[in-house]
């Protein structure tokens, strides 16, 4: 089984994002970036499948500007065997939508055979959660999204557990398939110093997006990005009756 894992370069989760003065988006210049944490989980699971001999090769994929190469190096340091960088310009990178990523993946999969595409359930920047289902739709492959457990499911199948409201949903999915990783699937490993050194020597292939015939044409337009409204300071009341009175006054409680 060959696995293609999608890894996206996003603003680091620890960064407090700021909205640009012109409200066109958030400030990304001079801000720490790292691999989307859900993609890290997908990658970890793929590497584990390889360690269990269920997979033969793990290839990391990223679509993005020049700096996405760093994220792919990280993926290589964390156990991917190869990496593919579908390159777009910095200007295009700001306009990339899930559909473009799904289309690029579709084109790659036409050229190179994979049995499984594994991505994070969402990226922490746009929270779109669309790449996996869009890709499954384009390819007409089965999908198993929000995986919290991935097991062997017999020849040509995987057994995938998903956390749903009120319990667990177990899906038997036929390969080739598209999977997305949920938070509790695993705890990703840290890249070790020896593996960081080795990553430098692993192959990283660059493919300009135009070679795949995918055009970064916006499906949506951003009207405005604004800071969440400031929460107003609360007040203190003496006791419960005073609280109830206050709530009635404000019209939160009916008489």
């Amino acid at each position: 089984m060959r696995i293609l894992v999608g890894v996206k370069r996003v603003v680091d989760y620890a960064v407090k994002v700021r909205v640009k003065p012109d409200k066109s988006g958030v400030v990304t210049e001079g801000v720490q970036h790292s691999m989307n944490p859900f993609d890290e989980i997908a990658l970890e699971e793929a590497v584990k499948l390889k360690e269990k001999k269920l997979a033969t090769e793990v290839v990391a994929f990223s679509l993005g500007g020049p700096k996405s190469a760093e994220i792919l190096r990280t993926a290589l340091a964390k156990g991917a065997d190869k990496a593919v960088h579908v390159q777009v310009s910095e200007a295009e990178a700001a306009k990339v939508e899930p559909l473009h990523v799904a289309q690029a993946l579709q084109k790659l999969l036409e050229k190179d055979k994979f049995d499984l595409v594994f991505v994070g359930k969402q990226a922490i920047d746009d929270d779109a959660s669309q790449t996996a289902p869009l890709l499954a739709g384009l390819l007409d492959w089965p999908q198993a999204l929000y995986a919290s457990k991935v097991e062997e499911g017999g020849a040509g199948f995987l057994k995938v557990t998903r956390e749903i409201d009120g319990g667990l949903d177990t899906v038997k999915v036929k390969l080739p398939a598209v999977l997305s990783a949920d938070l509790r699937l695993n705890e990703p490993r840290y890249a070790t110093l020896p593996n960081i050194m080795k990553a430098k020597k692993k192959p990283l292939q660059n493919i300009p997006i135009k070679d795949l015939g995918v055009e970064i044409k916006s499906q949506t337009s951003i009207l405005e990005v604004s800071e969440p409204p400031q929460r107003e300071a609360g007040g203190f009341v003496e006791d419960v009756p005073a609280l109830v009175n206050k709530l009635k006054e404000k019209g939160f409680v009916k008489n």
Binding site: P66, Q87, E90, P203
Partner: peptide, 16 residues
């Protein structure tokens, strides 16, 4: 040797 230079040079106009 590993193609990263190509990635870097495509962004000559940027702050990369």
């Amino acid at each position: 040797d590993d193609g990263m230079a190509a990635a870097a040079t495509t962004s000559r106009s940027t702050k990369a």
